[in-house]
Design a protein around this nucleic acid. Structure first.
Lengths: 228, 228
DNA sequence: TCAAAAGTGTTCTACCTACACCCATGT
DNA sequence: ACATGGGTGTAGGTAGAACACTTTTGA
């Protein structure tokens, strides 16, 4: 099986990409799901996904899926490859399918829910009926998300342009599922040197909080990521 | 594109698995490569790989590749999924191919080099001419291997059934590329509680060293790995 | 003036690092 | 007896965890 003809003819498995988008709303981790309009699993909820076309880079496939299935502007989303699932031959009941899963975080305000959008947020602690094996994939991705958030500034994707330190801390707490010490948290964040003091205050019923933005987008100590 | 027929007809990219097997020989990290007998890249060295057949689990594809290309008994090898490469549409000059890469470590003594085996070990610091984009893949995998070895007992796969603590330490040192303190290393290992004192001694020209084996196979604190 | 969230340092602890000498054996 | 690698403990430093009060504003 070495010529182009041989390779084209051999019976290839399907190759798909699924995307797990997380956000935080009401102090809860939400995952974005699509209500299926077709069989199999008609009416159940699935991760937005798409089969990889012959001339699509796999990360582009992920972004196209977000755009088509969720009407999400894919430029807004930072995605990271999670894992490739292909052990179970019956994952998809139609054809044998291997799925590359990406995950990412987004500020839920950045999503413009148009009329008829089937993309909706669901608490990861109270999921609806999930299609395929996507439930297990979501569970695994939460595990990896927590790990990632602990060892990088991945959580920063959740924030809007201006935010207070308490809001940032709250985002960490919701994802990690633990309470954090305010002073230790602020010390740790300030050592990253990625915050810009906007010299503005967020007014509220009580003492105003300083507003910050990020000086640069990302600062991931944990690893270099390939793009090839 | 939802029926089985549609899915079968759409122009799928090729899906392959490549395997990076590392070992240690002569205080050097070696990677197992296959000399290519076909075009493209005839005569160059490539990672052992294989296109995923319709009814093969992807990890099975990896093991079959090791068996067919390297005459390696795949039961001996612990593999971990590294990453899936599919950004470059021209990675393979024949057809557009997405590759799932697995990596693992093996005690080089476990490999039985039969006559005519094209699988050979090459120092990662002095690679021959490499086919496809496998050179960058190897570089990335070394990075990930070091990380993995630091935060788990992954390196234990390199050892034979009975080994001395100095041999184990040497394996760590070669992979990490640093010298380790003997006392600190032994303290750290003993806290893992995975060594069994065989109450045997390795005889040599000098003071005999105690021989150990592992009580269980693996103890990976870093994460749970999916198998679906 | 009171309620509510913002903001700010120090101490303690646990883990990691650095470091040096005696031991057991083969020759 | 000596050369060579095997085997062992302690002290200092550093990073993370625990912890409480004062400040600023709106109502």
């Amino acid at each position: 099986m070495t010529s182009k003809d041989d390779l084209d003819k051999y019976n290839k498995p399907g190759l798909a990409v699924d995307v797990i988008l997380f956000t935080i709303k009401n102090d809860d981790i939400k995952v974005g799901l699509i209500k299926r309009e077709d069989n199999p699993y008609l009416g159940k909820y699935a991760l937005p996904g798409r089969f990889v076309r012959y001339n699509e880079k796999i990360e582009d496939t992920a972004r196209i899926a977000l755009k088509l299935k969720g009407k999400i502007n894919p430029g807004e989303v930072f995605l990271e490859q999670l894992y490739t699932f292909g052990q179970n031959l019956k994952r998809d009941t139609r054809i044998r399918t291997v799925t590359i899963v990406y995950y990412g975080l987004i500020d839920s305000n950045k999503i413009d829910f148009q009329e008829g959008n089937l993309f909706t947020w669901h608490s990861v602690y109270n999921l609806p009926e999930i299609a395929f094996d996507h439930k297990r994939i979501i569970e695994y991705s939460i595990h990896r998300l927590r790990k990632k958030v602990q060892e990088s500034d991945f959580a920063f994707q959740l924030m809007s342009k201006e935010f207070t330190l308490t809001e940032l801390q709250r985002a960490y707490e919701v994802i990690l599922g633990t309470e954090l010490d305010k002073r230790n948290f602020r010390k740790k964040i300030s050592e990253l040197h990625i915050l810009k003091d906007l010299h503005k205050k967020k007014k509220g019923p009580h003492r105003p909080a300083a507003l910050y933005s990020f000086t640069r987008q990302r600062n991931d100590k944990s690893e270099w990521k390939p793009d090839f």
